[in-house]
Every structure is written in structure tokens, then in C-alpha cells.
Design a protein around this nucleic acid. Structure first.
Lengths: 174, 174
DNA sequence: TTGTCTATGTATAACGT
DNA sequence: TACGTTATACATAGACA
């Protein structure tokens, strides 16, 4: 189909190969369009040059995704579904975790506790008490630090306290 | 390219359409094979007849999945990633939520509080106190209910307490 | 490169069967 | 309906700009 017949084997001359590639690629895409119109077919065509450059054709009014989905259905092939499923599972897992944390948080705040029994309430109370103890210890530490701080603290020329530690501990800055 | 020129528009005669479809489909697949060999290209071709029947061609030594993955990478096109991205975003969102709940929970339990300042600790303490108050109210309610219950309770023939309310409240059953 | 031009090879529309 | 056949339209290899 040209000035001379050619064998169907790799074209060694790279610039010829490139030329032939782009001509034939256009040809195939044209044919794909035609069969789409003529025969009411759906076509998905993806071509990669050896250079890695890509071209595609996909019948109008049909997203490639849809075609691939049909492909997927028909072929029974998993394709991307594996990935899809992984993500879904991950979501489910995290959501579960999320829900239970949500519930635990609410309970600690004393919300949504009307259905809890004495034992369950006791567990929560214990946790709260433990938490409170820890928090208070920490507060005591801070107070101690402040006192130590105050005893060595000084004011600047404008009468402001000069102590990064003091500010940090009280949350006045940073 | 036949006995007569044809317009590129849907062939209305359905048997002609079917014939043309299968001829042209073979033609395209042949071309696809040729460009694959001649130009060292990779081709993925999926064709659906309007009947729903599918045919595919894929360059040898290349799985369709791989081609699609390359396609996906190169095209910057979302494709199935649209779905994936949605899922990923969802995951990110939930994870964020998760993390902050995680932190809040730890704080309420008095963990990981070494970097907190006085103000922040105070907030936590307030929440704990509020929660404790709620829990204690509920406990009181239960005690009241139990008392009321006990006064009207009875034992069964084997000496066991017969009171769904009592069991539920104390968590001995269910 | 990137395109345009033909001579030629191919694909195929319309027929037969 | 599903195949071969064949006249024709189309695609394209090589040449040249």
C-alpha cells in the first residue's frame, strides 16, 4: 500500500519507523471512528509509540471508563477492581475505628450514656478519674515550675516579665 | 473502498451493518498488529458490537492492565482514578478525623500531655469534670432505680432475683 | 523534523452463490 | 444467513519540499 510492498517486521530505520508510526496511527484511529459510526460500535483504542508517547481514541459519548468497565465485566478479569476493593476495605476499617472512638469520646464526655449499665459506667468513671489524676499531676508540675521561675524571674525595661518558660507554661504566648 | 463509495454514517440495514462490522473489525485488528510489529508500538484495542459482543487486541507480551496503567500514568487523565481519588480523599478525611479523635482521647485519659500548657490542661480538666458529673448523675439515677426496684422485687422458685430492670441496670446480664 | 504528493498495495461494499 | 469474488475507494511507502 505504497510505492513498494513492505514486509511486516520492525522497521529498522528509526526515522522511517517514526513516520510510518504516525501515519498508521492516524489511519487506525480513523478506522476506529468509522466503525464506531457505521456499525454503532464502541471502541477504545490506546496506542503507545516506542518512545512512550501515547495516543488514544474512544468512541464519543462513551467514557473510556465505561468501556473498560464493560470489558471488566465481560472478561471476568479483575483489573483495577483489586485496588478498588483494597481502598474500600481500608475505608471500612477506618470508619469502624472512627465510630468506636467517637463513641468512647462521647462516653468520656458523659454523652449518650443513657443505655449504659452500672458496670459500664463504672469503667468510664475509672478512666475519667485516672485522666484527671494525670492532668492534675501535670498541672502541679507546671505550678512548681512557675514558682521556681517566678523566684528567678525579672522584668524588662517596660515592666514585662521576661521568661520564655513562664509564657510557655501559662500559654500566654506560642 | 469497495464497489461504491459510502458515507460515514450509521448503516441502517442491520445485516449489512453486521457484515461491515465484522470485516472492519478484523481490518482494524490487523492494522493494530501491523503497527505493533512495524513500529515497535504497544496497542490496546477493545471493540464492542452494538450487540454487546466484545473483541480485543493487545500487543503481545503486554497485559492489558499494564497498558491501562501506563495510559493512566501518562494521560494525567483520571479514568478509574476518579473513583480511586474519591476513595482516597475519603480515606484522608477520615484518617484526619481519626487522628484528632485519637489525640483528644489520649488527652482525656491524661496521656501525651507533656507538651500541653496550663490553659490547654485546664480545658481538658473541665471536660473531664463535666463528663464525670454526667456519669455520676446517671449512676445516681441507676441507684435510685435499683432501690425502687428492690422494694418491689421478688425471687423466683430457685431464689434468684426476678427483675429484668435489675439485671439490665447492674449489667449482670445482656 | 513535518508536511504534501503520487504510484501502488490493501481493505472492503456490493455482488453472487 | 454466511461465504467467496471483484471492482473500487482508500491508505500509505517512498520521494521530495
Amino acid at each position: 500500500m505504497g510505492r513498494g510492498k513492505i514486509e511486516i517486521k520492525r522497521i529498522e530505520n528509526s526515522s522511517n519507523r517514526q513516520v510510518t508510526y504516525s501515519k498508521r496511527r492516524n489511519g487506525i484511529i480513523k478506522k476506529a471512528k468509522e466503525i464506531t459510526v457505521l456499525c454503532d460500535a464502541k471502541v477504545s483504542l490506546v496506542v503507545f509509540a516506542s518512545s512512550g508517547k501515547m495516543h488514544e481514541y474512544c468512541s464519543p459519548s462513551t467514557k473510556l471508563v465505561d468501556i473498560l468497565e464493560s470489558y471488566h465485566k465481560q472478561s471476568g478479569n479483575r483489573l483495577w477492581d483489586a485496588k478498588h476493593e483494597n481502598l474500600s476495605n481500608e475505608i471500612d476499617g477506618i470508619k469502624k475505628e472512627n465510630d468506636s472512638m467517637q463513641i468512647e469520646l462521647r462516653h468520656l464526655k458523659g454523652e449518650d450514656i443513657s443505655s449504659l449499665n452500672h458496670k459500664e459506667l463504672q469503667v468510664i468513671e475509672d478512666v475519667l478519674e485516672k485522666g484527671q489524676a494525670n492532668i492534675r499531676d501535670k498541672q502541679d508540675e507546671i505550678v512548681t515550675m512557675l514558682r521556681k521561675n517566678v523566684s528567678t524571674a525579672s522584668r524588662d525595661g517596660h515592666g514585662k516579665w521576661v521568661s520564655a518558660a513562664h509564657n510557655e507554661a501559662t500559654g500566654l504566648q506560642t
